[in-house]
């Protein structure tokens, strides 16, 4: 009962954010833009060409990151597992940075996504390999492996910046902060395709996530092909992180906060937790982005700054909260 009420509240929260966000900002947009879509007016231009695509992009990015967080936390049985803490984001960022520099020589459609994807996959396999050597996914091992992978890819990105020219370097830095900077619908539509694929795959795995969050033995006893499920989850999270990072940069902490807040609200069952986190994550990042572009208007902050400001303390709270009980 409580679960249903909480889930409804999450949906209401998301709807409120999504309707309010496109109207927030420096330029006042009257409600009449909804009735007559006349792109000749500045207001309609702002509303349809700048704000709506931006809201869509933010929602998709947040939803994808939250979905990755839910899946990784269940699979690694670790409350701190997210694309950001495991270094998947920096792997993807490295891939995308390569693409920024060598884009001229690489005439591949959606090159940035494919490069991000390769980077993300490399990071995920590296972390998984490192934890497997030490046997078991203890919180410390996983975080250390994540930090190591993060450092590794961060230094590779620094190296790329060093060899790149000034404009490229500036682009990389701006984008590394994590910002949602889009006009038009090309970006949101591309992201939509990749995000929908990733989310669909994870949602189909929801029952397996429940079992894997208990133990591999139980999952196997209940008929989960664990090795196969892991591969599928690695693939799905990598493709989602790649799509987000390629366009918005490595935005941190959404994948950490959304699943935890939702777990408090709707409980641990992934049948509900997964959709709840996806919706909440999307709405949450949209809200953060709206704050980022209105707080110091006419200037804008990268949304990554806001999420990190909220996420840092949240991360510490999680660490302290879990230090009481041991994580097997």
């Amino acid at each position: 009962m409580k679960t249903k009420v909480s889930f409804t509240l999450i949906i209401i929260f998301a709807l409120l954010v999504l309707t309010a966000a496109p109207f927030a900002g420096m330029i006042k947009v009257p409600l009449s833009v909804l009735k007559n879509i006349d792109l000749a007016t500045t207001e309609a231009q702002v509303f349809y060409q700048i704000r709506l695509p931006r809201v869509f992009t933010a929602f998709l990015a947040g939803a994808a990151l939250a979905c990755c967080g839910v899946a990784l936390q269940a699979m690694f049985r670790n409350p701190l597992a997210t694309p950001f803490t495991l270094g998947i984001s920096s792997g993807a960022a490295f891939g995308a940075a390569i693409c920024v520099i060598f884009a001229a020589y690489l005439p591949i459609p959606y090159g940035n996504i494919w490069f991000s994807f390769a980077g993300a996959l490399a990071a995920v396999l590296l972390v998984y390999g490192l934890t497997k050597i030490k046997k078991g996914f203890s919180a410390d091992t996983m975080l250390l492996a994540g930090i190591a992978v993060n450092f590794f890819f961060s230094s590779l990105i620094l190296f790329l910046q060093y060899i790149s020219d000034f404009t490229q370097s500036f682009r990389i830095i701006h984008w590394l902060m994590g910002s949602i900077d889009v006009t038009g619908y090309r970006t949101p539509v591309t992201m939509l395709i990749f995000t929908v694929i990733g989310i669909a795959v994870i949602v189909i795995q929801r029952l397996n996530l429940n079992l894997m969050s208990i133990s591999d033995e139980i999952a196997i006893a209940r008929g989960v092909d664990v090795k196969n499920a892991r591969k599928i989850i690695f693939f799905a999270t990598s493709i989602m992180v790649a799509a987000v990072v390629a366009y918005c940069g490595p935005i941190g902490f959404v994948g950490l906060m959304a699943p935890h807040i939702c777990r408090l609200l709707v409980g641990p069952d992934h049948k509900i937790l997964t959709p709840a986190s996806i919706i909440f994550g999307g709405a949450f990042l949209t809200l953060c982005d709206t704050i980022a572009r209105t707080l110091i208007a006419p200037a804008e902050m990268p949304v990554g700054v806001i999420t990190a400001l909220l996420g840092g303390p949240f991360f510490v709270w999680l660490l302290l909260k879990d230090s009481g009980k041991s994580i097997p």
């Binding site: 133990s215 006893a221 008929g223 097997p328």
Partner: peptide, 23 residues
């Protein structure tokens, strides 16, 4: 056997379940 078809025939009860199952 696929893992799923095996699970309909045979099940394994481990020595102990984890102590922190949230379900």
């Amino acid at each position: 056997y696929s893992q799923k078809s095996l699970a309909k025939i045979l099940t394994y009860v481990p020595q102990s379940l984890g102590a922190d199952i949230p379900f």
